[in-house]
Design a protein around this nucleic acid. Structure first.
Length: 272
DNA sequence: ATAGATTCCTGGCTGC
DNA sequence: TGCAGCCAGGAATCTA
């Protein structure tokens, strides 16, 4: 499940290899992943050079010479992998191939095929992208921002942290980890968090994202970076996927429950 | 305005 | 051993 650290790793990996190169062909094996007109998608991409590769939330933004923007969301099992010229690797579940002028390729692979690709003129054309909240590591993500955005949220804090309109890029893994580090129960009503808890939560969100970035993200099942390699942060997870195992703080068994429809890992003794 | 349920999708795991 | 059924979950869409 690629979240901010995983998507950022992909972007950092592929950027130096694809920037400045021209796309000479696009092969689409599963057209329904392309959510804008497929013919226009191919026509507008072929012959264009790649100007930049950026990330916003969990979206990958690839800007082209003709000012168009290729927007890729990996969802659950999507992967964007760079293959150099002559590479014999065949990526399983290849859905779309972007062939570059020097013989290298950018492969979009996706086993569960929930990923999306859009070709747009600007960010505002995509609602989910246009309405993203603050980046957790950007200066505008402050403890005050978090307090203001949670002040009217009557649902579980877990749900609010997963809401991309509040914080861009958090997913199930890092929300569970940040709540554990903060000692906050995932079912706490968001607006009941006290100022002290909010500033701790703010700090732990930033810290867990920073650490995960440093480890090249988390490979729990399928995630691979832009070069097809696994991340390392799974070794540092404290609660996600550790139900039944001892809590690293108190030693009692961690539990898994369902909160806002999501599998949620936590310690009932350490998170209040 | 807000929150909850449903939908998409398939590989891998569980249990009979 | 075989297979049905369930689960993983991000985000759009729908309902209340």
């Amino acid at each position: 499940m690629p979240e901010l650290p995983e998507v950022e790793s992909v972007v950092r990996d592929i950027r130096p290899f694809v920037c400045g190169k021209k796309i000479c062909d696009v092969e689409i094996f599963l057209p329904r992943l392309v959510k804008t007109d497929v013919d226009a998608f191919c026509i507008s991409l072929v012959g264009q050079s790649i100007k930049s590769v950026e990330r916003r939330g969990k979206y990958i933004l690839i800007s082209l010479g003709n000012k168009k923007l290729l927007v890729i969301h990996l969802r659950m099992t999507g992967a964007l992998i760079y293959l150099e010229k002559g590479s014999q690797k065949s990526e399983p579940y290849t859905r779309i191939k972007f062939c570059l002028e020097d013989g290298s390729r950018l492969i979009y692979a996706d086993s569960r095929t929930l990923g999306t690709l859009h070709l747009v003129d600007g960010i505002c054309e995509l609602k989910g992208l246009a309405e993203l909240g603050s980046e957790p590591l950007a200066p505008d993500f402050s403890a005050d921002y978090l307090r203001e955005r949670l002040a009217r949220k009557k649902g579980a804090i877990k749900g609010a942290l997963l809401n991309q309109e509040i914080i861009a890029g958090l997913g199930n893994i890092y929300v569970d980890e940040a709540l554990f580090r903060s000692g906050i129960h995932p079912e706490r009503v968001a607006l009941t968090l006290e100022k002290k808890e909010l500033s701790l939560l703010h700090r732990e969100i930033q810290e867990v994202i920073r650490e995960a970035l440093g480890e090249g993200g988390t490979t729990f099942r399928d995630y691979r970076n832009g070069l097809g390699e696994a991340g390392n942060f799974q070794e540092r997870l404290k609660v996600y996927g550790r139900e039944g195992k001892p809590c690293t703080k108190c030693g009692k068994a961690l539990e898994k429950i369902r909160v806002v429809g999501r599998g949620t890992h936590f310690c009932r003794y350490c998170q209040k």
